[in-house]
């Protein structure tokens, strides 16, 4: 399929999600269930996208595990995003040299 079509569909859907409530709605969502759902969804999406895909992200399970453990430990101790990401990459790279 044409890649421009995919990109256009992504862009239009993402825009409409933002635009419709911003331009036209005025009321607040009252349902506690729905508000909870929206609160949790970003975490759930990132988790499902990361696990187990992260283990296949470097082309070698071994280097990916090294990087994943690094990322886990550093984010557990609240290090900044970029430090976590680059350290995971660096340790995966170093593991790949052996």
């Amino acid at each position: 399929m044409n890649i421009a079509l995919y990109i256009a569909v992504m862009a239009v859907v993402t825009y409409l999600i933002r635009m419709i409530p911003f331009a036209f709605f005025r009321k607040k969502i009252k349902s506690r269930f729905f508000r909870s759902f929206l609160y949790y969804i970003p975490y759930a999406v990132l988790s499902a996208m990361t696990i187990p895909a992260i283990f296949y992200s470097t082309g070698s399970i071994v280097t990916a595990i090294v990087g994943t453990v690094t990322a886990f430990v550093l984010s557990y101790f609240n290090l900044p995003l970029i430090v976590v990401a680059l350290s995971a990459t660096a340790t995966a790279f170093i593991a790949g040299l052996f």
């Binding site: 990361t50 082309g59 994943t68 990322a71 995003l81 976590v84 995971a88």
Partner: peptide, 17 residues
């Protein structure tokens, strides 16, 4: 290939804390 993990590393840094 090592950089393939960079985005997932960031996702972990967002969800783990």
């Amino acid at each position: 290939s090592a950089l393939g993990i960079v985005l997932y590393g960031m996702f972990m840094a967002i969800i783990i804390p």
